[in-house]
Design a protein around this nucleic acid. Structure first.
Lengths: 115, 115
DNA sequence: GCATAATACAAGTTGACACACAGTACCTAG
DNA sequence: CTAGGTACTGTGTGTCAACTTGTATTATGC
């Protein structure tokens, strides 16, 4: 009964998904993965090794900025790299949402039953 | 102001799209491309070189069957290979539609704005 | 016969994602 | 104090579907 969304199907949408997750709240890589997983309710099957490269690409493209958060508060684990949207990233998110809508309309129009 | 849907974004959905197009009416490769293009209203940018391999895959997987239609009616062009859905293909189309719905729900839930 | 249109197919390239690790830091249990 | 678990960040190699471009076949019209 587990329906997994195939990796190929998120191709080209992952970047917008990551930007979306970061819109409401900045966070670090590991947390982003968990938030995406939670949002997908188990049907997304994202690994860190998939998401980190996306983050680098987005940072390179100046859509995200990152700062290191040292571990001085006694929590577990090493330091984290906290990502947040830049102005450019926010603009790109807008564009990505429009692309998403167009995509859903077109593909949905075909797949959803067309005379 | 032409908005093109990026190739990567249809990845993993093209097969279901092709099956959908063939559900209403059997047709041959070149026509399938044109019907997809028409359905996408110019925003899909599919080439024959993209669609034919999909058809081979689907035929290999017994989701489509093909028959040659010789050119004896005086129309232009060489003979055509006419594809139609098999029973298995129809079943797969159902599954593909469900996948599509799940995909739209999950990704739409993330991209479309999430608290 | 040459251009053009309709149709099928082939070959090589790309690039985002998958997979499977490797490395670092801290905490707790025994 | 050390073993194991958990929280993180990385990396390197492969895959495979989609892209690009080009070619082959048949018929019509000039």
């Amino acid at each position: 009964m587990n329906m997994f969304i195939k990796g190929n199907q998120v191709r080209g949408h992952l970047e917008t998904m990551v930007l979306s997750v970061l819109e409401s709240e900045e966070s670090h890589g590991f947390d982003i993965v968990k938030r995406l997983e939670a949002a997908g309710d188990g049907s997304l099957n994202l690994k860190e090794g998939t998401v980190y490269p996306v983050l680098y690409r987005l940072e390179d493209a100046k859509l995200l900025k990152a700062k290191w958060e040292e571990n001085d508060s006694g929590r577990k684990g090493p330091r984290r790299k906290v990502y947040s949207l830049t102005a450019k990233g926010r603009k790109q998110l807008e564009a990505g949402r429009n692309e998403w809508k167009a995509f859903v309309n077109v593909v949905g129009g075909i797949v959803g039953g067309l005379s």
